[in-house]
């Protein structure tokens, strides 16, 4: 069976689920950020696959993927800066211990 759109979408869904599990279940804030990066990559795969198989001559999906990469880079820089700042102030990056605003 030749590889088609469904294969890429299933791969994207599998990667997104792995990232979702990691973002929900992990304590370490850096691992949570890494899981979010995996989820963004999964969405990019779906975008490029749609662009390739539904409208191969119009590259709108790839343009969207480029903007997602830009936002992901900004998010990684600011998120890791926040993690480092929290570690400097509280000596921990366990997300269960960062509960200052928890009711």
């Amino acid at each position: 069976m030749s590889v088609g759109l469904e294969h890429y979408l299933i791969l994207s869904a599998v990667l997104f689920s792995i990232g979702l599990y990691g973002a929900l279940a992990k304590k370490n804030a850096i691992v949570i950020l890494m899981s979010i990066e995996i989820m963004l990559n999964a969405v990019n795969i779906a975008m490029v696959a749609f662009s390739r198989y539904i409208v191969p001559t119009v590259l709108t999906g790839q343009i969207f993927a480029i903007f997602i990469i830009v936002v992901a880079a900004a998010e990684a820089a600011v998120g890791l800066a926040i993690v480092i700042s929290i570690y400097r102030n509280r000596e921990t990056i366990e997300s269960t211990d960062i509960d200052l605003m928890k009711w």
């Binding site: 992990k26 304590k27 370490n28 691992v31 570690y87 990056i93």
Partner: peptide, 11 residues
Amino acid sequence: TREVQYGSPSN
């Protein structure tokens, strides 16, 4: 952050 030795446990 020197958190390598604690690993990444689940909550």
